[in-house]
Design a protein around this nucleic acid. Structure first.
Lengths: 339, 339
DNA sequence: AAATAAATTGCAATCGATTGCAATTTTACA
DNA sequence: TGTAAAATTGCAATCGATTGCAATTTATTT
């Protein structure tokens, strides 16, 4: 167990007394090779702990079986990489990819600065790209889409773009969340999140729709634009109450983390939840129900979304048609709202 | 912009009117090539959006610039992949790796079943491995260590093993946490976590040491063994109180998520925190301070740990010596304990 | 047993970049 | 201007697996 001169396919072939072509075919389970031969070679490979050199294989086949997953974070909020939701998405994608025999190359958008499509794909580092988050502007994504390279994006599937988007029905989510607050008696509902952000823009639409259906006036001061971080939420709510008083009795937030930040600000001022202010989150992260009060929220089905994204990407590889897909959402009613 | 016949180095060389060797050297900034030539070729590469074929390059150089990160989860707790701490570690590793020019191939231990070392390294998929979590048994890790392949493990750096471990001083962490509870007047302190788990075993030692130094009797019933999930914690605490009453006034937990689960169980029974039961977490995840009451916890410096791990791995590549490293921890005092 | 079809296996080119060494050009110096 | 030294650049082999096509072996049929 000393000189680890790495074994090659040729070595295995020699040991088996066949040519490398036969060895290659045998390991790939090519039926053209006699079963007995196949078994023998595979046994040998196992015995000697041999595994195919991926670099060589990829070079020859022009296929990597790797998918690059890109966390498309908004530049100045590096913080948001700690959002458990985002990371959960990565975890689920990893599962889904592995199940289909793909590996996951993780990257964030800071890295492959200019054009990642080129960086990952034309360099044969990966066969396809999954982008997590549309962010505010999607120029880069558009560029990739135009080049026709395999890509799937987690974002708002109802957005009118030229690429395949998988995601929740954000408008509906915003609508349901708001409606729930209205039904429980809220009169002045704040939207806490950045309406410029593509996905949030949809939720904002839903929010406005629910309000106007209920005959409420949509005031500007009810829209509090912040980054998607708990810190930003905490600060914004604190500051708003400080300067303008408690002019709202309900909050629709852009994520559970944001909701938690807002909750903290409210609790510090001994504002009753949900009696004085009710609050709805978005995502349903693991700790949503652990909170006090437990958080009413819109659950996104990440596991399913991950599977769909991978399937769609594989479809693209195979030249099959793909299409943007809406993943079900669900209102999870807990104790941060009245009901 | 139609026929995307992928460009090769040879194409660029032809465009520049030089040989591929010159082109190759130019792109790698080899000083042996005249500056003017280098600039010209680089400009051409940029203009035509060319990037080196990684597969070919890796095959030739036997270097991938990829590091495989393996989440070494305990089999039956698939759940724990949602622990924000673990995922934060991945995020920080990604940053640290990118900063050094490496890419991150994500994997969990379920995948490359038998021996991942072989799978990733001798197949030239990655140059090295970072294992996150020692888990309960470390047979697989030992096997890799014996084979001498480049690897760094996140775990307990004080453990006596043959490989490089980076992590917090868990024993000290357990000690400090327990001491803090004792100092604030707790008499019956529960340890909530699995002492079989390598890292937790150390914390458990620290816990026992603090207790015995304080002259407390260490009773068996004070050790509640559970998986590292909030759900398990919630159930265990609920059940324990149901069957045995509230015989404790302090809890040392194995992670913030576990602490949150325990908190929920306590709050449901209207048990005062920290007045009746004080509780200390571990990790200091983002939402520790958002909680109510905010969570006293032992902070682990993940960012620094990630940097150290990457440095150690690079050292191994370069044949330099490496050694297990202890990363500072810190008691963050908040409102779930008296002080 | 001869002839033909079917089943196996091997030959050799190929994927695209890198690099030791040789060849060529440029610069320096007498 | 001639020649040695220095600076550039190119040739061709190489990394290890895959695969079209040809070659060989085995099975089938008459």
């Amino acid at each position: 167990m000393k000189a680890d001169k790495r074994l090659t396919l040729a070595d295995i072939a020699k040991l088996a007394g066949v040519s490398t072509s036969t060895a290659s075919r045998a390991l790939n389970d090519n039926p053209v090779i006699k079963q007995a031969t196949r078994d023998k070679i595979k046994a040998l490979a196992t015995k000697y702990n041999f595994s195919i050199n991926a670099a060589a294989s990829r070079l020859r086949t022009q296929k990597t079986n790797v998918i690059a997953v890109i966390l498309n974070l908004v530049d100045h909020t590096e913080q948001s990489i700690s959002d458990p939701f985002l990371l959960k998405v990565v975890g689920e994608l990893n599962q889904a990819l592995n199940n289909k025999g793909y590996e996951l190359l993780l990257s964030n958008s800071f890295m492959a600065s200019d054009d990642w499509a080129n960086y990952f794909l034309s360099s044969s580092r990966a066969d396809g790209i999954i982008v997590v988050g549309q962010g505010k502007s999607d120029e880069k994504i558009d560029a990739v889409a135009r080049s026709g390279l395999p890509m799937v994006v987690w974002g708002d599937p109802t957005s009118d773009v030229d690429y395949t988007v998988v995601g929740s029905d954000n408008k509906l989510g915003g609508y349901i969340a708001t409606k729930h607050l209205i039904d429980s008696g809220c009169k002045n509902i704040v939207f806490l999140g950045d309406p410029e952000h593509l996905e949030l823009a949809e939720r904002y639409k839903g929010y406005r729709q629910a309000l106007s259906e209920a005959g409420c006036i949509i005031e500007d001061k009810l829209t509090l634009s912040i980054d998607i971080t708990s810190t930003a939420a905490y600060e914004k709510i604190s500051e708003t109450i400080l300067h303008h008083g408690l002019f709202f009795d309900g909050i629709v937030t852009s994520s559970d983390m944001v909701a938690l930040g807002a909750l903290k600000a409210l609790k510090e001022r001994y504002i009753g939840i949900p009696s004085e202010v009710a609050i709805v989150g978005f995502d349903d992260i693991a700790m949503a129900e652990l909170f006090h009060p437990s958080l009413t929220t819109i659950r996104q089905n990440i596991k399913k979304a991950a599977e769909v994204m991978v399937n769609q990407l594989v479809n693209q590889f195979e030249g099959k048609p793909t299409q943007s897909t809406v993943i079900d959402i669900e209102l999870i009613t807990r104790n941060s709202t009245r009901h």
